[in-house]
Design a protein around this nucleic acid. Structure first.
Lengths: 192, 192
DNA sequence: GGTTTCATGTAACTAGTTACATGATTTA
DNA sequence: TAAATCATGTAACTAGTTACATGAAACC
């Protein structure tokens, strides 16, 4: 039950249509919370019924009409309540880890290729985050208030991606060494 | 659609009852994949119908009877197929990040307390992982095959937890400095 | 005498995904 | 003329959570 809140946060920063929110969940906000447009529309509808957002129909020329949502006082109150509420630890889900654990039953070189692909994708995302850091927050020491908070969220992305990339590298090194044909001796078995 | 596979991996390592799997998902395996007993029973039933697992009724004295599941050839084949299949990047979900992004609307000190609580819990989990590392893998350089793979999964847990703990520390430092009353000057606003 | 462990489940719900639908406008 | 963009949605499904139920045995 947090998509509601992610949408409220996003709408607090800028009043938007469902379409617009969906696009933003494909990039900026999507880096730390994700959702499809279908779900966004459904949740917006529910939030409207609960009175957390106020829809305003906007007629447009040359493109479809849209509904722009604004956060109501009730919505803002809900956000404040939710922020103070203790949050559960997110359960960790490492699919690559599950695969790795059973790797010896299957095709280890294929898995190695997969790990490399993940490394590349996470490294790419890390580059993106670092570019944002450089561009949007050149002097982090001087930051305060909301701008500081935004910066810290980005730092979370950087830290997590760094951890994943480093782990992928470690796995790639280890699997490569373990899969490679032994040069001198062949007493070291690879199958336990 | 990966709980099936996590269960298959777990059952490959040891034939188990649903109850037993549920307990293991509360610790070891649960550190990188989680599930409740209700869901485990449901998925086991489905896997039985699909022929991926073979149930064996075990009558016990002094305690309830149980069904012990073994992975079938079809199940093993499915695991091998799944391991080679490309996996999507797990969408990142950082609830604390969402809260932080809207922190200035609410109670920043309360959120700071929350971040500290998370830091402590993740640090505790990190300690646990490091203890496993020391105890179960004292000489990681000598590892190969399945044992190496298990070690690498644990390393993933260590990397991720390190990243989260470090991030929490960074957030705590920054929020503490930003929330503290300015000692000399008061020209630096905390509200953007 | 109350709680925890062992063991399996159902029922009702919320959350999230995938596929499909519509239709004008703009861009390649 | 085909595809992408803008804009909103429904329908059907899969995944996961919460609450409830049962009942014996062992432990404190």
């Amino acid at each position: 039950m947090a998509l509601e809140h992610a949408l409220l946060v996003s709408l607090t920063e800028r009043a938007s249509s469902g379409y617009d929110l969906a696009r933003r969940f494909d990039k900026s906000i999507g880096f730390f919370w994700n959702a499809t447009h279908q779900q966004i529309y459904r949740v917006l509808k529910r939030m409207d019924e609960q009175g957390w957002v106020i829809p305003e129909a906007v007629v447009q020329e040359g493109r479809p009409d849209k509904k722009v949502y604004t956060v109501s006082d009730a919505g803002r109150a809900e956000l404040v309540r939710w922020i103070a509420e203790p949050a559960d630890l997110e359960p960790m889900r490492n699919e690559l880890g599950v695969k790795l654990r059973a790797a010896s039953l299957g095709d280890v070189p294929a898995l190695l290729t997969e790990v490399k692909r993940h490394r590349d994708q996470h490294a790419h995302r890390l580059d993106l985050y670092r570019a944002f850091e450089k561009k949007d927050y050149p002097a982090p020491d001087q930051l305060s208030g909301p701008k500081l908070h935004q910066y810290l969220v980005l730092r979370g992305g950087v830290r997590v991606e760094e951890g994943i990339v480093d782990w992928c590298e470690e796995v790639i090194d280890a699997l490569t060494r373990d899969t490679a044909p032994s040069p001198a001796s062949d007493t070291k078995g690879t199958q336990g």
